[in-house]
């Protein structure tokens, strides 16, 4: 259960060569959004779009495949996508909105759908939430510190960032640099430390690189809405899949990382409670399964 409830988990990648080239891993988010847009399953999607400042994304409403692809790839800093959902419905007039969300963002969306206290006629227009695995997020200045200062690379030259194999990877046109992940510790935002969700347990479909080889992604299909879109995209030949049993390192690594995140967060939650600080989640003594997301 450390990976949440799901109908199916597979290794997958987009079959589109262009998406493969620019995507972070298997191009699942880009591929599914492009498919959902083309088929009219969504009218638009809120994604982390590029801005004038390199690696500093802003939420944007993508209405075409080109706009989806312009936002492809992971940015390791904030893009408050939930903020843009209301504009997507009110200003862009979308009836069926897709969005890409990290676990905490999916929590904001799901809470709003179950308890829409002050949010009028929006909950039922969120048609597709694609979740991405997330261990922690960094303030923009943190990113700049370990790229400019620790790795000594000009921020503007960076073409791709990635986290994997215990390292933070920085790729420029002519070199690949790494920083041990240990050196990034202390730079992550504090709010992440009580988060129990690694694999975006509340998304319709959640995906990330961990568990599968380079160029592929692990995909959890969780809800009915997610199953519909994912199955159709596979049947249409836009996404190819493999069994998780046939790929390395497989689900074991995901289970380990998810358990690590939950164990660490539970410790922080219990410590905070002991100090009398607020935490929205139950302490380990208050629930049957200490690693459950409650």
């Amino acid at each position: 259960m450390v990976l949440g409830t799901y109908k199916e988990v597979v290794a997958a990648r987009s079959t589109d060569k262009q998406i493969q080239k620019i995507a972070q891993d298997g191009g699942i988010v880009s591929g599914l959004f492009c498919y959902a847009l083309d088929e009219g399953l969504i009218d638009g999607a809120v994604v982390a779009g590029p801005t004038d400042v390199m690696w500093k994304p802003e939420p944007m409403v993508a209405m075409s495949s080109d706009e989806i692809l312009a936002a492809a790839g992971t940015k390791y800093t904030f893009s408050p996508n939930v903020w843009m959902l209301k504009q997507a419905v009110r200003q862009y007039g979308l009836e069926k909105v897709g969005t890409v969300a990290i676990p905490c963002q999916s929590m904001g969306i799901r809470k709003m759908q179950s308890y829409p206290f002050g949010v009028r006629f929006l909950a039922d227009k969120i048609a597709l939430t694609l979740g991405i695995f997330c261990m922690e997020n960094f303030p923009y200045e943190s990113l700049r510190t370990f790229i400019s200062e620790k790795a000594g690379v000009d921020f503007d030259l960076v073409e791709k960032m990635d986290i994997g194999k215990g390292k933070f990877w920085i790729e420029t046109a002519d070199q690949t640099l790494t920083i041990p992940l240990k050196e990034t510790h202390g730079y992550e935002q504090n709010g992440c430390k009580v988060c129990l969700d690694y694999v975006c347990e509340l998304a319709d479909v959640s995906t990330g690189s961990v568990g599968t080889p380079d160029g592929w992604s692990t995909v959890f299909v969780r809800t009915d809405a997610g199953e519909t879109v994912f199955k159709q995209a596979v049947e249409a030949g836009l996404i190819e899949t493999k069994s998780m049993d046939d790929v390395k390192p497989g689900l074991g690594l995901l289970e380990k990382l998810a358990t690590d995140k939950k164990t660490k967060a539970m410790k922080v939650i219990d410590e905070r409670k002991a100090m009398g600080l607020p935490v929205p989640y139950k302490g380990s003594s208050e629930k049957e399964d200490p690693l459950a997301n409650i």
């Binding site: 939420p59 904030f78 939930v82 963002q105 206290f117 935002q189 988060c195």
Partner: peptide, 12 residues
Amino acid sequence: ALCIGCGTCAMA
């Protein structure tokens, strides 16, 4: 130390 910058408040 709880904010994660999700944007739900600004949306709401």
